[in-house]
Amino acid sequence: MQSIDHHFLDDYACRNALRGIDTRIKLILGLGAILIAISADTPYAPLFIALILSMVIVFLAQIPARLYLALLLIPASFALMSVIVILFLTGGGVPILTIPLPWFTLTATDAAALHSLIILSRAIGGTCGLLFIALTTPMIELFSILRSLRLPDEFIDLAMLLYRSIFVIIGEAVAIYNAQVMRNGYSSFRKGIVAISMLASSLFIRAWDRGEELMTAMDLRCYDGKFEILEPSSAPTISQILPVLLFFSISGLLAFLPLPFPPL
C-alpha cells in the first residue's frame, strides 16, 4: 500500500519491550529530552540526546532499526527546505559559499553554517525525544495521564472516541482505495482528483453513520458523559528513576555549560 499511511507508530508502541515501564517516567524522559534539546545553544546536548535515545529505542525497546531510520527521515524534507533558507539568510563572519543566480547572489557565511548546524541538531534531538514517546508509550496509557491533568471530561472522551474512530475508518479507506486502484481510479491526475473526492465523501458518510450507531450503543450501556479509565497501578521504581536522572544531568550539563562551539 503506497498511498495510505496506515502503519501507525501506536502499533509498535503496543508491542515494544519497554511497555511495562511506568508511563509517567517514559513521558518525563521524552518531554525532558525535547526540552533540553531545544534549549541548548551548542549541538553537543541535542546530539548526545539523539544518540542515547536512539540506542534506547533500538536496543531496549527493540524497535526494528530499519523502521526507526525511516521514521527519522519523515521530517527530513521540511528540515532541508527550512535549513537552506536559514543558511542563506542569516549572516555574520566570512563567506564560505556563494551561488550567483541571474537576479541575485546567494551567500552563506561560516557563522550562518554554524547556526544552521545548531538548529538542525536541536531538531534531530527533539525528533528523537518525540519518537521515544511515540514508540514506547501506547496512546491508551496516555489517556489516564490526561485525566490526571484535570482536562475537561468532554475533551478526553472526544480524544478517546476519535482515537477509536481512526482505526475504524482507516480500514474502510484502505478498502475503498484498493477497489479504486483496481478500476484504474488513479490512472490520471484528473481521475485521481475525482476518485479521492469520492473516497473522502463516502468515507465521511460511513463515518457519520458509525457515529450515530455508536451513540446508540453507548446509550444502551448507560453512558453518562464520562468514560472511566483504569488508573496505572505500578509506581516507578528507583532502578528506573536513576538512569533517567543520570541522563538528564549529563545532557543538562552539556547544554548549559559554556562549552566552546565551534570546537577550535
Binding site: I169, W208, L214
Partner: peptide
C-alpha cells in the same frame, strides 16, 4: 460527541 469524534477521525485519515 461521537459525531465530532468521527469528523475528527475523518480529518486525521
Amino acid at each position: 460527541l461521537p459525531l465530532l469524534a468521527v469528523a475528527g477521525a475523518f480529518v486525521f485519515v
